[in-house]
């Protein structure tokens, strides 16, 4: 029924282009399921972190109350939340078939994501040099960097994904072939934000409270 030309055409897109083809529907469903699995992945990391939090054994280490500086993390949180909103704007324009506006909002999302990642690198660097809080120093360090680092790796991957999609499709506009892909990367981006909300609360805020 639908030939190649139809899938790659930017004209007359249906109401929900991300789920208009069977491929799109499959991707949409599969990606949600994948996020369900990611929930367990992060739960294992969170559980391990909580079990090993402030656990130093015979090694020396700084407890979480003294280690974490909240203002920087607060700014990072706001940045990531904002990037979540900007990607919602991107999808909003995708649904209205305003490709250029979508690209603008996704560009802002990428910039915010990159600045988040930059701040995170700065933060890790700070912990390593000021407090000697490293991955290998003690179990607390291992668990902390495993959890927050896994999240950071997800952010980095999300950025690469966004950029690849945007460069690949910059010239040809929105169509039924790439709409599902844009939709998925934005879902992924929200999920990263969801995880961060818990990291902010469980690691940093609760770490400060003790």
């Amino acid at each position: 029924m639908s030939t190649h030309e139809d899938v790659l055409s930017s004209e007359n897109l249906p109401h929900e282009p991300e789920r208009a083809t069977l491929e799109g529907k499959n991707k949409f469903m599969g990606f949600w399921f994948f996020l369900g699995g990611e929930t367990v992945l992060f739960a294992s990391l969170f559980g391990t972190y909580l079990a090993l939090k402030n656990s130093f054994g015979d090694a020396e280490g700084t407890p979480s109350q003294e280690l974490f500086g909240l203002p920087l993390v607060f700014i990072m949180t706001v940045i990531l939340l904002t990037s979540s909103l900007t990607s919602v704007y991107g999808i909003y324009h995708m649904k209205n078939q305003a490709f250029k506006k979508m690209m603008v909002w996704f560009t802002i999302t990428v910039l915010l994501g990159a600045s988040f990642l930059g701040l995170e690198v700065y933060e890790f660097n700070h912990y390593v040099h000021e407090f000697h809080h490293t991955f290998t120093a003690h179990a607390f360090g291992s668990a902390f960097y495993a959890l927050v680092g896994f999240h950071g790796a997800h952010v980095a991957f999300g950025l690469l994904w966004f950029l690849t999609l945007m460069f690949r499709n910059a010239k040809r506009g929105l169509n039924l072939y790439n709409a599902p892909k844009f939709y998925l990367v934005s879902l992924y981006w929200h999920f990263i934000d969801v995880v961060w909300v818990f990291i902010f609360t469980v690691v940093y805020l609760m770490g400060k409270v003790g």
Binding site: M29, W32, F33, L35, G36, G37, E38, T39, V40, F42, A43, S44, F46, G47, T48, L50, A51, S55
Partner: peptide, 28 residues
């Protein structure tokens, strides 16, 4: 979004059990 909800909340169920176990019965 019925199936996605089902799967996400099943994931949350498994996640909660995991975290509960690792925080309570791990000799800490």
């Amino acid at each position: 979004h019925e199936m996605p909800s089902l799967m996400i909340f099943s994931g949350v169920f498994a996640a909660v059990l995991t975290i509960l176990a690792l925080t309570t019965i791990t000799w800490i």
